[in-house]
């Protein structure tokens, strides 16, 4: 399968999982009288995380924008997801550069994943970027700093849950994703 088709299918699959499956869940870690924040885990940013390493930044930005707008359309959030995705896409290269041992152009057609990077670097990479995405999303959604603790709790809870889903996804699909592109 060509790398374009592979990424396009991943786009569709992730949107499908996010919109038709995860958005129907409203999770909370425990019930408390004051109301522990409810949240949905987000896995669709994985599309940006898993784009090939040598993808030019402008393409990452534009695909992030498109991804965010598609999710916004389904979730009625105006442009909040798009803004968070573009922010995350912009930060991607800055995070990826120090984590990878070699120069960026040496990774031709290779996606950042568990197979290519090992568990620790990959989870570090995805947790930093997902943190930025969730922070941007929640700040734009709540649009106030009146309850910082609420923001922090909601951020941590949804971030950890999203990371669990990211790990699950990479466990399920890492075998098929990278067999052909190993150098």
């Amino acid at each position: 399968m060509s790398i374009y088709l592979r990424n396009f299918l991943r786009f569709l699959a992730l949107i499908g999982i996010q919109v038709l499956l995860l958005n129907k869940l409203s999770l909370r870690w425990w019930t408390s009288p004051n109301g522990f924040p409810t949240f949905t885990p987000f896995v669709y940013p994985l599309f940006i995380l898993l784009l090939p390493i040598s993808t030019p930044v402008w393409f990452v930005l534009i695909s992030g924008f498109g991804l965010g707008l598609t999710v916004d359309m389904f979730m009625n959030t105006g442009g909040i997801h798009a803004a968070a995705c573009v922010f995350m896409a912009f930060a991607r290269m800055a995070v990826l550069k120090p984590i990878l041992p070699r120069k960026i152009y040496e990774y031709k057609n290779l996606s950042p994943s568990v197979k290519t990077m090992n568990w620790t670097p990959f989870m570090t990479y995805s947790s930093i970027l997902l943190f930025l995405h969730h922070l941007a999303y929640l700040l734009l959604d709540i649009w106030s700093l009146h309850a910082p603790l609420y923001l922090v709790i909601k951020l941590l809870a949804s971030l950890v849950t999203s990371l669990l889903f990211v790990a699950l996804y990479s466990l399920l699909f890492s075998n098929s994703i990278n067999t052909q592109y190993k150098d």
Partner: peptide, 23 residues
């Protein structure tokens, strides 16, 4: 791109509601 996003957010939060991006 961020400016476009903010424009969309502001538009969707006005009382008239967005006619562009909604389900």
């Amino acid at each position: 791109l961020e400016l476009i996003c903010f424009r969309l957010i502001v538009k969707s939060n006005s009382m008239q509601g967005s006619d562009l991006i909604n389900s």
